[in-house]
Design a protein around this nucleic acid. Structure first.
Length: 488
DNA sequence: GCATGATCATGC
DNA sequence: GCATGATCATGC
């Protein structure tokens, strides 16, 4: 085995590439290149987070793990990260986790700019070691390393990361760390640290000693790392379009300001006029209002690179003439068995709102057409998520856990299956509703009900099946979150 | 008028 | 074939 020059990033990368194709178990059996020889039998322990990273540091690079504010290879300025990826059903890669960079300290003043911060040491040059997480394997040590590559965010991303840093630092410095959420920012996030909220909530000693906040760390978001994987590490055929093609645009305005100004420029036009401007068929169905949003942003497809990296979801909000929003807004599908097995902070629903930003484009009906009012970038306030949504989620989960009761009801259109799940009015923010093509149930006695097929249904914890459901955002809640000027 | 269960339409 | 945005039909 070759060795490496700790002063030279390229040499460290070359050395690391010997890992490619090997499992952690194999690496563990190699001779460490230096003094670290003590046996760490727990590297592969699934409950020990970071075990695999420690193995690489100690058994492969031969240095002792530390929690230094400097980079792991200080002379070369390289930070080592060992992280999992997964393959989606379509074969694209997805980061298994956000990339945690360094803790946010509440004990001392926070550096006001990224380039002067200790974070910069940890995020400017990273040696990414990516392994495939195959949950079918019994032991983490059997996971295999696929990539080992240096990574530095490109300039255009650094502009956004710089602005993300400022957003987080400003909130901390204002004594508002307790209101932080990963979805406050685009690529660089402030993620929670620690096993549970109870154990990991501490006073904001420096800026607001009387107010406790979750421990948090700077991270590159999962969505950002997924993009990095598919673009720099293992380029695939995923095709995204950049909204911002000239990064000089970010010198004077933030990303959000650019987005909003591009859309607001068209405020006052109707959906019909916009369809004409962008040469789109005006047909009032399909995803017309979302398509128009992307056209106003200046891209031809509905795949915006920046939105993928920052996990921004476009939602078209249409208000009726009286200001009411007629329909509720669906969220991604729900899996009952996950719902009952996950803790709140690991749940699909929490994670979705904690990490997702929304771009609302708001229209209001006038006569037969909808007039564009403008746009708003929104993420769910921390309190709403952790009180109201959490409560709604728990109530739904409890019914699913205990076994949903179904009632066949005869209606004018034939039999309909009613249930005892919480209803829309039981929670101010979310509710649960069917969301698929057709109805499909399988009851306890094996009876099948509905015009759909198996794939229209989802298995309940007790083995029965129910028509696929989604969480939905209550229309009134969305309206309540809109800026006044967009509602008038 | 609106909640609820059901379903349509399209693009990937 | 499925996920997701959009919408419908009934009954209270």
């Amino acid at each position: 085995m070759n060795t490496y020059d700790k002063n030279d990033a390229k040499s460290i990368e070359d050395y690391a590439q010997q890992l490619i194709g090997h499992t952690f178990r194999e690496v563990e059996s190699w001779d460490a290149p230096s003094q670290v020889q003590e046996d760490e039998a727990s590297y592969g322990n699934k409950s020990r987070k970071g075990g695999l990273g420690n193995l690489i540091e100690e058994k492969f690079f031969g240095y002792k793990v530390n929690s230094d504010e400097r980079a792991d290879f200080p002379e070369a300025g390289v930070e080592l990260k060992v992280s999992p990826f997964e393959k989606t059903q379509k074969g694209a890669l997805r980061a298994g986790e956000r990339l945690v960079l360094t803790m946010i300290s509440y004990e001392k003043a926070i550096e006001s700019s990224l380039y002067q911060s200790h974070l910069w040491n940890k995020c400017k040059l990273i040696l990414l070691i990516y392994y495939l997480r195959d949950k079918a394997l019994p032991n983490n040590l059997d996971y295999r390393i696929h990539f080992a590559q240096l990574f530095t965010p490109p300039d255009e991303d650094l502009k956004i990361i710089e602005s993300d840093y400022k957003t987080i630092a400003d909130k901390v410095a204002a004594g508002r760390a307790h209101e932080l959420s990963e979805s406050d920012t685009m690529y660089l996030g402030a993620c929670t640290k620690g096993a549970t909220a109870e154990k990991s909530t501490v006073p904001q000693a420096y800026y607001a000693p009387d107010i406790k906040a979750r421990k948090r760390a700077f991270c590159y978001k999962n969505s950002y790392m997924t993009y990095v994987l598919n673009t720099y590490i293992a380029p695939g055929k995923e095709e995204y379009e950049k909204i911002i093609t000239d990064s000089n645009e970010l010198k004077e305005k933030t990303f959000e300001e650019v987005i909003l100004s591009r859309i607001n420029k068209y405020a006052g036009k109707t959906d019909k006029e916009l369809c004409r401007i962008f040469d789109r068929e005006y047909n009032n169905n399909k995803a017309q209002w979302i398509d128009l949003t992307y056209r106003m942003l200046g891209i031809k497809s509905n795949k915006a690179e920046e939105f993928a990296k920052a996990q921004i979801v476009v939602k078209a909000i249409r208000l009726e003439e009286n200001g009411h929003m007629r329909e509720n807004s669906p969220l991604p599908a729900l899996k009952f068995k996950d719902l009952v097995s996950e803790a709140w902070e690991d749940s699909e629903l929490f994670t979705y709102f904690d990490e997702t930003k929304f771009l609302f484009t708001v229209y209001r009906k006038v006569g037969e057409e909808y007039v564009l009012k403008g746009a708003q970038i929104w993420n769910m306030p921390y309190d709403d998520l952790n009180t109201t949504v959490k409560k709604g989620w728990e109530n739904i989960r409890n019914v699913v856990k205990e076994g949903i009761e179904f009632y066949k009801t005869e209606t004018g259109k034939g039999l309909v299956i009613k249930n005892n799940l919480p209803k829309k009015n039981d929670n101010e923010i979310i509710h649960i509703r069917p969301h698929t093509q057709q109805t499909y149930y399988v009851f306890e006695d094996g009876e099948v009900f509905g015009k759909g097929r198996l794939s229209d249904s989802d298995e309940l914890p007790d083995g029965r099946r129910m028509t696929k459901q989604s969480f939905w955002l209550n229309n009134e809640y969305i309206v309540s979150q809109l800026e006044d000027k967009l509602k008038k």
